[in-house]
Design a protein around this nucleic acid. Structure first.
Length: 329
RNA sequence: GGCGCGGUAGCCAAGUGGUAAGGCAAAGGUCUGCAAAACCUUUAUUCGUCGGUUCGAUCCCGACCCGCGCCU
């Protein structure tokens, strides 16, 4: 990487040196929900001949539109959006599958000589895509079912079991964090080797691209206020009807996307477990919690250029254009 | 005016003559195949105010202030 790049500053942040100067340009836009990622991505795509690859774990689902703040097709300005509406609500999806599909989509875009722009708030998916995952087994539902029964009989037994197979993993994963304990155990059992050992053999990182990672960082107070307003707006303009419609299509309330903020509360509202006011209140609160967790996640993201403000602010837009301009020149 | 009840963190709230549970919110953090998930950490030198009793009071006593209710 030319050393000159490392010395340029944008809103006080140095441009990170890319990993592969000879690779194809790739842009990733991260940031908390409601920070203006989609809008900025659209502008960048329009200006730099790009196509968008969704990196949001819920926008992959069909019919979940208003509650996921999905950009309506009419607003996409003819720019191709990939990995949106690719699953039915009752289908399971994982970071591994996301990574494979996103890489495929990006290869297609680059093959057309266009710029792939990955956009979304699911940090785990972004990491799986860019840094890769370890070479582990996929989900084994029947094994997981058996483990769940065991845990139910004796609370804490899974973590103790993990300690026997992989003391290091057991130390790192809190005993109460059942999903992670389960996965670690699943890996140990299926591979007959400790997860920690498998982790050490590395991840299948993305290659062949020089990646520019942009993170949007609006003022916290302003973000929370705008999220509260957006959430309220969702309830007033179609969220409830959307949920009724999805249910009417025959999808069960146990479908994964119904667990997410907004949808969960709408279901409770429909059941009379919450008043309209409470539903909005809890949806807003969970959305704020989510935004906070996203901020925590992306703070750790390596080589990410933070732009202070919302994606629709002129300064942010200009800075992003300059960064992408340099990347693609 | 009298009587009763109550005043504990941003909010809800437990509590005991021996040095302030818990929940929510907030902040910080973790994350290698369900991640809008799951999980972890931190947060009252202080209990309306002022006195008194006591080795020691948030807890007992008195006065006052505030809120609610009832009575006149």
């Amino acid at each position: 990487m030319p050393s000159t790049d490392a010395n340029r500053y944008h809103i006080g942040v140095p441009i990170p040196a890319g990993a592969d100067a000879s690779g194809l340009p790739l842009v990733a836009i991260a940031g908390p929900t409601g920070s203006g990622k989609s809008g900025l991505a659209l502008e960048l795509a329009a200006a730099f001949d790009g196509e968008i690859v969704n990196c949001d774990s819920l926008q992959v689902y069909r019919y979940f539109d208003v509650g996921t703040a999905k950009l309506p097709p009419a607003a996409r300005r003819g720019i191709p959006h990939h990995l949106i509406d690719i699953l039915n609500p009752d289908e399971l999806f994982t970071a591994g599958e996301y990574s494979r599909m996103a890489r495929e989509a990006m290869a297609g875009i680059a093959g057309r000589g266009r710029l792939p722009i990955v956009v979304g708030g699911t940090g785990f998916y972004l990491r799986a895509l860019l840094d890769g995952l370890f070479e582990g087994p996929t989900r084994d539902q029947s094994l997981r079912d058996r483990l769940a029964v065991r845990e139910q009989r004796r609370s804490g037994s899974l973590h103790r079991l993990l300690a026997r197979f992989d003391a290091e993993a057991a130390r790192k994963i809190h005993a109460h964090d059942l999903p992670k304990v389960t996965r670690a155990l699943e890996v140990c059992l299926v591979m007959r080797r400790p997860v920690s050992e498998l982790f050490r053999s590395g991840r299948d990182a993305l290659e062949g691209y020089r990646t520019l990672k942009i993170g949007l960082s609006p003022d916290r107070e302003a973000l929370y206020q705008s999220l509260d307003a957006r959430c309220q707006q969702m309830f007033e303009s179609g969220l409830i009807d959307e949920v009724r419609r999805i249910l009417g299509m025959g999808f069960a309330e146990s479908a994964k996307p119904f667990e997410s903020h907004g949808y969960k509360q709408t279901l409770q509202l429909l059941h009379g477990e919450l008043t309209a006011k409470e539903a909005v209140f809890y949806a807003q609160r969970n959305t704020r919690h989510y935004a906070k967790r996203q901020i925590t996640w992306f703070r750790r993201e390596s080589n990410l250029v933070w732009l202070k403000g919302f994606g629709d602010m002129p300064e942010v837009r200009d800075a992003a254009f300059e960064l992408v301009g340099e990347l693609t020149k």
